[in-house]
Design a protein around this nucleic acid. Structure first.
Lengths: 324, 324
DNA sequence: CTCTTTTATACTCACTATGAGCATAAATTG
DNA sequence: CAATTTATGCTCATAGTGAGTATAAAAGAG
């Protein structure tokens, strides 16, 4: 196949490394130019035999972490995703990966774990519907809808309602990316201004819709969170995020942290125990207050028994009330 | 960031274009060097603003088709995926997309629609458990398991059982890729020999495990089929594969074709009607034998009512009997 | 024109899964 | 020891699923 000479293409690998600590989903970030971003590095076409190995290598080089679970997320390659990538520069293709691990303290400067919901305050429904939705997001998006021509406005209204569960539509926890992209398109997040080369408008800064990240990393993170939320229900990935041995409440809190919604305790226990996902170790947890809990471990055999063993998302005490 | 000089990286886009015709899933292929493969072309770093647009453009250039539904599948980039990609050549990264459409007759030479199950004869359970599984695949894989050292053999046994549903494990229709990769690793498909630069062994040729494709395209196809099977149950993607107006049986046959398993007619109807996925048009189908069926259309409002509207996979009449 | 065949559609029924609670058990704390 | 806190067991109504039975409406055979 004959190809015309092309501007260079740079292929990079990005890692969204997620942990859950103190009932909070956490993300490993590296600071650079004052902004936090995902760990990433270039693909070494010579040495890296597989993409996944390349990802692990970059992560090791940057953070000296050896991660276990790794899964490819998405490949981003639209032009001008990054303000730095202007005419003439190389075209950046970034292949992003999701990795799940237990949090480990990081000594290196600039590397730290951040709470994921700092970036997406509207995604955490554990304490009920986040106020930010009705107080700030809904009005701002209403403005964006109204700013369009008649036909376009209907389409915008629909997208807004379906993504954010306004006007009686249900909230779908997995649509994390839809929501972020809508806010970006509506110029309600800092990144939108930065990418257009404009100073961030004062009223958008006042909206304060989460912590911005470098380049399009927050978009990648949104993709990752949506993926985890979906995957957790049909594959036993939670177990990557808890120690080998855990109590059912710890497991539940981990799921809740990721799902961003509370679960009914007894039903969660029933699901997980009767679903054959865990087995008792015989030991019980020490310390803490209250009755000591039994300690469980992941029961690997479930993989050969059931086709799609996951944690589902049963009995959530709220998350149903439609917007007033 | 400083980078050492690198061997060139070529980024390509691959399309898995799927249709369902005469109750059979179909794939658009291009012949080249006597082997069928997926349509693909390079990313034009200069002109292609987004990856998805690039994919659509390549597809248009190759086939003059304008597809509707397009979704990114996976990015393949392991070295030596292709025997042509040897030391010294550029590193090929291919970003693959899934596209769903209605089949259109193709005039161009070399372009044609093939039955997907020609490539994966073990994936079609509509007429019951495929004989090929017990007659040829199971014994061959047993051999592969036995050929390993003790510890490794257990791991292989597990993978085989979980992927193919042997030894009482359930069959999971979505594990299309797992199964293909296992056969590849066990050197039971033509591509495995070709990639090792060896002539295809006579006994493997005799096994006849599906039609081979160019490069790693069959692996990409496997990824696509697995994805469709999963997605169909929680997103209304089937409707991309049927005309605007259809009977419930046509819809059911389309789902069955993709899922590779039969469904219970009355239950399917109940699911789809009560799930609010379709609305009656008032008209009825003509022609055919038997009582004329009502014609339905996709009810788009379902998107704002339910978070994950899909077709599910209810009442399958078989697919449960474990291996003898 | 009636019988047979074929596909469509309406209902029923048992069983399982889910959403919500109530009740009791076993620790810690003051 | 009483109050508090967390764990765990059980019940109950309801919705969803898997599998049939029964009836309706067409075409084709004789």
């Amino acid at each position: 196949m004959i190809q015309a000479p092309q501007p260079p293409i740079a292929v990079g690998l990005h890692a969204v490394l997620i942990a859950v600590t103190r009932e909070t989903p956490r993300l490993l970030t590296l600071a650079r130019d004052g902004l936090d971003g995902l760990p990433y590095g270039p693909l070494d076409a010579e040495r890296d035999r597989t993409l996944e190995k390349a990802l692990r290598a970059r992560l090791r080089e940057l953070t000296s972490l050896e991660v276990g679970y790794v899964e490819q997320l998405y490949t981003f390659g639209d032009r001008n995703r990054d303000p730095g990538e202007r005419r003439g520069g190389p075209r950046n293709i970034s292949i992003s990966y999701l990795s799940l691990a237990l949090e480990e303290p990081m000594a290196e400067r600039g590397i730290r774990w951040r709470d994921v919901y700092e970036c997406f305050p509207w995604e955490d429904w554990r304490a009920g519907r986040p106020e930010i939705l009705d107080a700030r997001i809904a009005p701002a998006l209403d403005g964006w809808v109204a700013a369009a021509s008649a036909g376009e406005a209907t389409a915008r209204r629909d997208r807004v309602d379906i993504s954010f569960g306004f006007s009686g539509a249900p909230w779908d926890g997995e649509r994390v990316l839809d929501r972020y992209e809508l806010l970006y398109e509506a110029m309600l997040v800092d990144e939108a201004f930065r990418d257009h080369g404009e100073p961030i408008a004062g009223d958008v800064r006042a909206l304060d819709l989460g912590v911005a990240m470098r380049s399009d990393h927050r978009r990648i993170l949104a993709t990752a969170i949506g993926r985890v939320r979906g995957k957790i229900r049909y594959r036993p990935v939670v177990f990557e995020l808890v120690p080998d041995v855990f109590t059912l409440l710890e497991l539940q809190r981990t799921v809740e942290a990721l799902a961003g919604q509370g679960l009914h305790k007894q039903n969660f226990r029933r699901l997980v125990e009767r679903g054959g996902l865990v087995e008792a170790t015989g030991r019980t947890a020490t310390g803490k207050t209250g009755r000591p809990a039994m300690l469980f471990r992941f029961r690997r055999d479930v993989l050969r028994e059931r086709p799609a063993p996951g944690v589902g998302l049963p009995g959530l005490p709220s998350a149903k009330a439609p917007r007033s």
